[in-house]
Design a protein around this nucleic acid. Structure first.
Length: 290
DNA sequence: ATCCAGGATCTCC
DNA sequence: GGAGATCATGGA
């Protein structure tokens, strides 16, 4: 139940949630840390400041309606993560450790176009750099939201932006990929509404028609934007931890890992992936020491 | 300074 | 069809 005061503060109680873990676990890129328990969060052209005190969330700068109908959905608050995590943790020891390591992670429901472009930028790139490039693109082409904060540009706002313009913002070789993605979205070849009616396989098939979008990026969009929670994106970190912990060696064929993930985690594979990814990355599992 | 990054594509066989 | 090189950039 929500309450609202004169300062447009919406208060809400939550469980199985950590604002910092959910934001910092690598699934999204548009947030600013005010302090360890307070963040400015952006999604598309929406922005809100959130303070977490234990199981209490304080939203600032968003109406009660926006919190109820947008941010609740964004943070996936209606799902019972207690049950989900217990189910996963019982599968095996590694999964139990990964869930226990960051039990406050929830899978965000991200805005489609922003998610697509963000993960195109993510290829062969570092997370801090990805964030920086996205911020530059937003400042340059996005809608001002006040307080020096900018919305992520719509496909329309990026339609006239050239490959060279994107390169100037540090996108490197990914510039042409973004141009193609923008073009396909604006032409209606890639439409969120049409795609959402497709099966996961059919949807993936459409996403990879974008130049520069392969299986991994498509899977991230499927999981983080379309809510296809059975999808298991495999990046270098997930490959490392799966190879090391489940196969006890380095170079396991990706197909084998997909097979195991589906068999073991099934409809929860996407959640499993995020706990594993964050755990592996923070612990440096599989990374060769220097 | 050198390495590497939430990969995908191109090129060769 | 599978392995290997290549791609831009800058944070670590």
């Amino acid at each position: 139940m929500n309450t609202i005061d004169n300062n447009l503060e919406v208060i809400q109680s939550v469980s199985d949630f950590s604002l910092s873990e959910t934001l910092e676990c690598g699934q999204c890129f548009r947030f600013y840390k005010v302090n360890p328990e307070e963040y400015m969060v952006l999604s598309g052209e929406k922005c809100v400041r959130i303070l977490q005190k234990q199981n209490q969330l304080f939203f600032y700068g968003a109406s009660q309606e926006e919190v109820e109908f947008f941010w609740n959905d964004y943070f996936d608050f209606s799902r019972n993560y207690g049950e989900l995590k217990q189910n996963l943790a019982e599968k095996d020891e590694i999964m139990g450790e990964a869930v226990g390591f960051a039990p406050g992670i929830r899978i965000l429901r991200q805005e489609f176009f922003e998610c697509l472009i963000s993960f195109i930028l993510s290829q062969n790139n570092h997370i801090p750099r990805i964030k920086g490039i996205i911020e530059k693109i937003s400042k340059e082409y996005g809608t001002p939201l006040g307080n020096e904060v900018y919305g992520f540009p719509t496909s329309k706002q990026l339609l006239q932006v050239s490959e060279d313009d994107f390169r100037k913002l540090g996108t490197g070789f990914r510039a042409k990929y973004i141009v193609d993605a923008v073009k396909k979205v604006e032409e209606g070849k890639i439409s969120q509404e049409d795609l959402s009616k497709l099966s996961t396989e059919g949807l993936r098939e459409q996403l990879v028609t974008i130049h520069g979008v392969g299986r991994k990026i498509a899977d991230c969009v499927l999981l983080f934007s379309f809510g296809r929670y059975e999808v298991f994106p495999i990046d270098v970190w997930v490959k490392r931890i799966m190879s090391e912990c489940y196969f006890e060696k380095k170079d396991v064929p990706i197909a084998k890992i997909f097979e195991l993930a589906e068999e073991k985690y099934g409809e929860y594979a996407g959640f499993a992936q995020q706990y594993l990814f964050y755990y592996a990355r923070q612990k440096g599992i599989g990374k060769k020491s220097r």
